[in-house]
């Protein structure tokens, strides 16, 4: 009884960690630009697919991973530079179409560069299950949770302690104010895309040995990440992490106890219920419109 529950909890935490990373990616970009980047899921896909290819070329994992993360970050910067910056202050719908267009473009490129097949990455430290309190767990799950936690802590340090991080936060509070004190808005925007693309790639890579990857793998991951970010309150980093864990655990529980066919619906049911009562997410603050 408790062991099945634990089993579901572990897989929920594993999923949740990935959603949290994807959600954080949404929040970082949203803070820097008020853009929702629908191509976020593609960063996860690019990270995983690039790693698969590089490992295929004979590179060791320790080298392939940083390289793949760098590739994803470069794609992120290119996306910001050539699609988001030129859009300027276009309306919400316009920017949504741009980033959805970017996601379709990236999937198309992935199809051409790679293929339409599923690919697996070897597990980082074997596939011998570890048993914890009667439940079993793949070593890769520990990698997922550990790496995600490390990434989240590193981000916390970056935004809390470094000048660049503080500058980015300043932009999210007041664009004009940040500009007045000399924060380079454009560089902040590009950095935010690089950062969340890299972060997404890391998530995509560590989870690839468990879930397989393909050119389309980013679609659902992206949407779940968006749910996580909205659930926590857009632009709230801690909220995105919390939202990711809630979505991941709820998904694993509903797959386990209710119906595996509806597991993908869980995130969206939660989001609708939460937005019904809290229109600005769990940790989002409500602003009164000023006239």
């Amino acid at each position: 009884m408790t062991s099945t529950f634990l089993q579901f909890l572990f897989s929920g935490l594993t999923l949740g960690a990935i959603y949290a990373l994807a959600g954080l990616g949404f929040s970082i970009i949203y803070n820097a630009s008020h853009v929702i980047n629908f191509a976020q899921g593609e960063f996860l896909m690019i990270g995983a697919m690039a790693t698969v290819s590089l490992v295929g070329l004979g590179l060791p994992l320790e080298l392939a991973i940083p390289l793949a993360v760098a590739i994803a970050a470069a794609v992120g910067v290119a996306l910001a530079r050539f699609a988001v910056v030129p859009a300027g202050d276009a309306s919400v719908v316009t920017v949504i179409i741009i980033t959805i267009g970017a996601s379709i473009l990236l999937r198309g490129v992935a199809q051409v560069v790679w293929d339409k097949e599923f690919h697996a990455l070897p597990a980082f430290s074997g596939t011998v299950p570890i048993s914890v309190l009667g439940a079993t767990m793949l070593p890769q799950s520990l990698w997922v949770m550990g790496v995600s936690l490390a990434a989240i802590l590193a981000l916390g340090w970056f935004f809390g302690r470094t000048m660049a991080g503080k500058a980015m936060l300043a932009v999210s509070y007041s664009r004009l104010g940040a500009q007045l004190v000399g924060v380079p808005i454009r560089r902040v925007l590009l950095t935010s895309f690089a950062l969340s693309a890299g972060l997404g790639a890391i998530g995509g890579i560590v989870v690839a040995p468990i879930t397989f990857t393909s050119y389309e793998a980013g679609v659902m991951l992206g949407l779940k990440g968006f749910s996580a970010a909205v659930l926590g309150g857009l632009g709230n980093g801690l909220g995105a992490v919390l939202g990711g864990l809630v979505v991941g655990i709820a998904e694993a529980m509903s797959a386990g106890y209710l119906s595996s066919a509806y597991k993908d619906a869980t995130a969206f049911v939660i989001i609708l219920v939460v937005l019904f009562f809290l229109p600005n997410g769990l940790l989002g603050h409500k602003g009164s419109e000023r006239v």
């Binding site: 379709i104 473009l105 198309g108």
Partner: peptide, 20 residues
């Protein structure tokens, strides 16, 4: 064929950037 998504994506981005 294979380039369909690429062209579609580019058109979506291009229209929104240049013909908002």
């Amino acid at each position: 064929e294979d380039y369909e998504s690429i062209v579609l994506g580019l058109i979506m981005i291009g229209t929104m950037v240049f013909m908002r």
